[in-house]
Design a protein around this nucleic acid. Structure first.
Lengths: 112, 112
DNA sequence: AAAGTATATTCAAGAAATGGAATATTCAAG
DNA sequence: CTTGAATATTCCATTTCTTGAATATACTTT
């Protein structure tokens, strides 16, 4: 698992953790404010064990943190990027400016 | 595969397409401006067929579009969310305000 | 139409994610 | 220390992702 050469490895791992319907809905709630597991379980409408699994996944990449208080466990978002990303998902798609010619390194800068 | 109830399904698919080191590096280049496949291949340093595979994946979720011009094929980003997300990945993590009590629907709003 | 170039697609095997079931852990109360 | 409640973890079968290899397609030139 020698997976840490490109700077994209870590970003990819973050995005992968987010790229799941249930985890997204969890984060969406958590982005507002800290919540306990029972709340999250009720909101998402899945088994508690399953919710815990998904929360563990989110912890694994460090986007949420848990805090115990008696029997309850409270989760909250600890990575600001999550909010930006979740918010951007609501954004309309939008397009981009057209094109221009090609200046491949393969074509122009070919001196290996 | 009856997977289209939550609005998160589609967002998750988008994020999943992005959550890959090679695809991220492709998008990073494409976010600047349109590029041809040979350019992308040279930049990323992988086999051409492989790059095409990843570009196809990105096309599948609609974040890039291809345009033919002779033998060359030019790709460009067509989903504004991609830029926001990629940019946010460079952002420092940042933390969040503390906590408060719990008001589970399970606890308070229990009238099922 | 044959040959060459740039790019796309298909196939398959190994790796990883998914989600259910059972079970373990932790804390509070008695 | 036993019981019960809230949450976490482990195990496993199934599905999905990954990526190399081979091959196909599309366009240009001759």
């Amino acid at each position: 698992m020698e997976y840490s050469r490109t700077p994209y490895q870590q970003s990819a791992a973050l995005l992968r953790a987010l790229s799941h319907p249930v985890r997204l809905s969890l984060l969406n709630v958590l982005c507002e404010e800290e919540q306990c597991v029972c709340h999250l379980t009720a909101l998402v409408g899945k088994r508690q064990a399953y919710i815990s699994q998904q929360l563990a996944e989110l912890r694994r990449v460090g986007v949420v943190t848990m805090r115990k208080e008696g029997l309850r466990v409270y989760y909250r978002v600890t990575d600001a990027r999550v909010r930006v990303i979740l918010k951007s998902l609501e954004t309309p798609r939008g397009a981009q400016r057209p094109a221009h010619g090609c200046e491949c390194p393969k074509c122009a800068d070919k001196g290996g």
